[in-house]
Design a protein around this nucleic acid. Sequence first.
DNA 1: CTTAAAAAAGCAACTAAGTTGCATTAAGCA
DNA 2: TGCTTAATGCAACTTAGTTGCTTTTTTAAG
Lengths: 127, 127
Amino acid sequence: MFRNTPIRIAILKIFSKIKNPLTTQELLNALKEKGLKANKTTIYRQLESLRTNYLINEVRFNDRNIRYELNKKNNHHHHLVCVKCKKVKDVILPEDLHYQEKIIWKKNNFKVLQHYLEFFGLCKKCQ
Amino acid sequence: MFRNTPIRIAILKIFSKIKNPLTTQELLNALKEKGLKANKTTIYRQLESLRTNYLINEVRFNDRNIRYELNKKNNHHHHLVCVKCKKVKDVILPEDLHYQEKIIWKKNNFKVLQHYLEFFGLCKKCQ
DNA sequence: CTTAAAAAAGCAACTAAGTTGCATTAAGCA
DNA sequence: TGCTTAATGCAACTTAGTTGCTTTTTTAAG
């Protein structure tokens, strides 16, 4: 199904090492730093392929960029984005949104399949 | 501070009547339907002005578009987006995310100022 | 009502992200 | 080793959004 091309391997390696979601541009830069000059078309196609095969997830913060991160099993989490220093920290919520989604089901008969949830505020250092 | 230009008035009127967040393109179309041909530069500048003055909010669903809706007082809500028919319904969560944000504060010393939360799934009709 | 200052609108040119079609290269397998 | 097909590269294109500058319009003072 997939072919283990140098670019694909490099992209997955970068994602596995990085702590925060990457924009397309950041990924391109990271590849360049590794000495791998990849065409932007290739990157867009790889990201699309990885995404539709559930290997990576899209993440949206409060700017216009779309970011990507590895879609590891049992690693559902959200992000705390500091509006001042822009640092990002993963956060796992106890019970996540199960309670809210149960209410939504009862009240609206809407079956939630997925949610986007990100928090913006001030980290410890920036307050 | 603001000047009551026909375009600004028309934009606010459209937002006050519409139920779901609008993309820039949808707003342009809605204006056209009213017989108001407005330059796209003007629309972008109006949206930016309305946003920085807290009259409208940005909303992100799972496509690339940024949508806008009126920022009414005491109307904090989230959206149920049907992945099949694309219909959008507002939802108000009891207690919202206060509990989760309290936990975040206790565990991470992160002061949440804002959150993005949207639900994607199947509406009553589409299940 | 007139007029002056400043904000808003319009216009054209530009930027940058993302896409498309097609030719070339290279995985992976018989 | 060679064949098939996916992946890559490239150039041209599309489209959203931006910028700089000119013109128009709002608003408020005289």
